[in-house]
Design a binder for these strands. Structure first.
Lengths: 144, 144
DNA sequence: CATTGACATAAAGTTAGGTTTAGGTATTAA
DNA sequence: TTAATACCTAAACCTAACTTTATGTCAATG
């Protein structure tokens, strides 16, 4: 049995966060003695599950849902898989979007790099697109 | 000259958002006639800059900073480049993190796929790591 | 006996980027 | 003339996941 301070140290999670999780119902079996929280094996396990699922980018409400399903046993495998499947698709899209963002940023960096070297932006605007670095051409076209 | 409603339609941005940008000072040259906003060329340009910089994942306060620098001319090329450079690094890290997340999700999907096929999770726990699909082995090791 | 430290609570605050609401003005069409 | 539109403002609300604050209990230590 651990106190909240001990758990906080073990997992490197602020005490306030643990209390918050408790308030949100993530430790349904948490015991208390004279008002003080006593974290047992089950609660530690619950915390590990929270940490792990947060790692996979799930929101707390999804973590809650997952825990509900998990306690219902093998009849909810499908629900759980769908949860992860959906999240997987969302993450894939996020990555794609960030990669587009990265392209734009590459262009911006190239642009200001050149402006710094030239001392002006004017030359860039006068450049013929086919004189641009290949890597930059496509980006250039989408901005002008 | 356009009204807020026209700009809203042209850019497909809610009117409330345009008012919000105005309140935040993104249209320093916005004119009004009898209280009503009149968007001119400059304001439209400002809006395009906002849209573009948001595309590159900048926060509004960075967009604001950028606009300040941009109005100061060529002496701020370096600042502007640094802004994008920093953002680029941040985005690269975000992508890396999401790719880790994706790995976890791949594992989770595989796990529940197998659990559904087997009707139980028990078999997975009894599997020898080297019998797992190669793609999964590394993930398995980091979870058990 | 006073203070320190660990625990407790409820409620308010934080962050960003808006959106919604409640109330008012001004123009135009039927 | 009244009804619909389009515009205006200030202020409250929203989300998510916490954090901070104000206040209080309790046990051990000096």
């Amino acid at each position: 049995m651990y106190t909240i301070g001990q758990v906080s140290q073990m997992f490197n999670i602020p005490i306030s966060t643990l209390r918050y999780y408790d308030k949100e119902g993530f430790f349904p079996n948490l015991k208390r003695s004279s008002g003080i929280r006593r974290f047992g094996e089950q609660d530690i396990e619950a915390l590990k599950v929270i940490e792990c699922l947060k790692e996979s980018g799930l929101e707390l409400k999804d973590v809650k849902q997952f825990i509900k399903w998990a306690t219902k046993g093998s009849s909810t495998y499908k629900n759980r898989k769908e949860l992860f499947e959906k999240r997987k698709i969302a993450v894939e899209q996020e990555i794609k979007k960030l990669q587009k963002t990265l392209n734009i940023l590459e262009y911006k960096c190239w642009y200001y790099d050149k402006a710094i070297k030239d001392g002006t932006e004017d030359k860039i605007y006068k450049m013929l697109p086919n004189k641009l670095p290949t890597r930059i051409q496509k980006l250039y076209n989408s901005f002008h």
